Simulated scan of single mutants.
Amino acid sequence: MINYKQLYYFWQVAKLGGITRAAEQLHLTPQTLSGQIGELERTLGTPLFIRTGRRMELSAAGQLALPHAEQIFMLGNELEALLHNPGRQGELTLRVGLTDAVPKSIAYRLLAPALQLSQPVRLLCQEEKPEKLFAELALHHLDLVISDRPLPATVGVKGYSHRLGCSPLIWVGTPTLAERARHDFPHSLRELPLLLPGANAAQSAPLARWLQEQKLATHVVGEFDDSALMKSFGEAGVGLFPVPEVILEEVCRHYGVEPAGRLDEIQVSYYAISLERRLTHPAVLAVSQTAHQLLSGKAETTNASTTGSPADP
């Protein structure tokens, strides 16, 4: 029978990336921790780590065992929390990763339906680079990742990209810039400064191609990985910038900008990426089933501006 304390030690070493770091966290000596994992490997009859000098990498058996160990100890944590707070019985947990290219206001719109279920939902969100989130998803640390691009084949994670919907881009700017841009758009942009999302955004490459075709690339004055920072520069009148139409009203109200021209040639898509081919988590289903209407602006949901939406549209 598996010794669950030894399994916990294995989980910690795998999660923290080495014996020394895990030993410090667990207040054990590295020798004791190494011996306990060795005992577990002998019980299981297979090595869980491949040791190369001081480095420890998961073996094939370790990679197979890790997600199961993760589920075991997550269930243990949920049981402990439930016993300490019986009033939360029946609560669903939805663990979501948001890539940093997804505007917070869009993330709010997509996730809000999960909180409107009759069953209580506890939402746990983290924002990170896509590669980090896909790794967390593979380890079952997340239920889904919301991204502006599908799961790349190169990341080595077996998952499924569920397209939630899309939205065209709208160029916006201060009233003065927007008025100048609306005259003979898009040719008018040749004389105006432009701000663009950084290379991490899915629309970055299509926008670059469009600017080249329109001979507008010479007027790009800034590129931003942080969409909120790009909007702040736009608010200050530094340049026109593109936003998805789904959040146009919020951006205009929050940053004091106006629409300058519609860019139907480029559609920004959003995806829910999960390990399931068929979505089954009730909260994830709620997100998926209402996303198309939300992104098309047809959903009959509470206006984000009256329910505490993020300050960064």
Rank of each mutant, 00 (worst) to 15 (best):
L98Y: 06
P120R: 14
A304Y: 11
Y255L: 10
P193N: 12
G198F: 04
G18Q: 05
L98F: 07
M56S: 04
P313W: 10
G222C: 14
Q119Y: 02
H187Y: 14
I170R: 07
Y270K: 00
L124R: 09
R262G: 06
E57G: 09
G308P: 04
R42L: 15
P282Q: 12
P47L: 00
I170V: 15
T174Y: 02
L216Y: 04
P120S: 13
S118E: 14
I273F: 06
V172Y: 01
R42Q: 14
S269T: 01
Q31L: 09
S227A: 08
A138I: 00
P150I: 13
E223L: 11
Y108Q: 08
H219L: 02
D143E: 08
G222I: 09
A311K: 08
E276K: 12
P242I: 09
S269L: 03
R55W: 03
G17H: 02
K15V: 01
I247P: 04
S167C: 14
L79R: 10
S147F: 14
S232M: 14
S204M: 09
L285S: 10
A208V: 15
L44T: 08
A65T: 11
L117E: 04
W11F: 13
T93D: 05
Q63Y: 01
R253M: 09
T176Y: 01
L240D: 05
G234Q: 03
L16V: 00
Q89G: 03
P282C: 06
